[in-house]
């Protein structure tokens, strides 16, 4: 190491603090054998110490600490879970999991009610059919080709009605098949078919449960892989007549 390099390093070397820093290893070795160099270092350290003491004596404003602490109380989330003991993190995780399950259950319990309500609202309004056909089997093939529920079973009484067509609908991102039947004098009858997993709170039996939703009468049941919702707007015709 030449004298220039030594002069540069001696200006930034801090005895004690930088002793493990490899870039100062040669300088430290040189200091052991060179009293002049050691004296230069001592003078520089004394000079730095004087400046350091002056700068470190500058006091912050008296109220700064209080300001920092009060600011934190109004601005920061006071509880940092990641810094809590593991047992507390575990308890929190269990509580959160429980809340999530409850929320999921609540959501699932409401699923069929919402599905029925929204489908009733749909048929209460004017909406176009995607497919017009008088062939129930053809409609089923179209649903199948599109990947929509297609392995459904239409109740025998409903089969006797004239099929007008159908719709591919989505509800909460799930596929719903809609069949539209036409009566001669009593308006339209609609059959919704959805995977039973979509509305797990729907009636689980094949016995239809009848409900009035506004002007729309519905009957719902579950059979095989699907949940069915039958809807009609004519109150003079018992919905049971379509099963």
């Amino acid at each position: 190491m030449d004298n220039q390099k030594i002069r540069e390093l001696i200006e930034v070397y801090r005895p004690g603090l930088d002793d493990q820093d490899e870039q100062f290893a040669e300088l430290i070795a040189a200091l052991r054998n060179d009293p002049t160099l050691q004296r230069q270092l001592d003078e520089r350290v004394a000079r730095d110490l004087a400046v350091r003491n002056k700068l470190r004596a500058v006091a912050p404003p008296a109220d700064l600490k209080a300001r920092l602490l009060s600011e934190q109380k109004v601005s920061a989330f006071p509880f940092n879970l990641t810094r809590q003991p593991r047992w507390l993190q575990a308890v929190a995780a269990v509580i959160l999991l429980g809340l999530a399950i409850l929320w999921l259950r609540a959501t699932r319990q409401d699923a069929f009610l919402e599905f029925r309500t929204e489908m009733a609202q749909l048929v209460a309004t004017e909406f176009p059919l995607d497919t017009h056909t008088n062939n129930l089997a053809a409609l089923q093939q179209i649903f199948s080709a599109k990947g929509w529920p297609a392995s459904y079973v239409v109740p025998p009484a409903l089969r006797k009605l004239h099929i007008e067509g159908g719709c591919l609908r989505e509800w909460r991102g799930k596929k719903v098949a809609l069949l539209c039947f036409e009566t001669k004098t009593n308006g339209d009858v609609w059959l919704f078919v959805v995977d039973r997993q979509v509305t797990p709170d729907a009636p689980t039996t094949a016995d239809p449960q009848v409900t009035q939703t506004g002007n729309i009468t519905t009957a719902s049941w579950t059979s095989g892989a699907y949940t069915y919702l039958l809807a009609t707007e004519n109150p003079t015709v018992p919905i049971h007549s379509y099963f």
Partner: peptide
Amino acid sequence: VNELDGATVL
């Protein structure tokens, strides 16, 4: 340096 105050050094 010791004769100076902190504000001056700063």
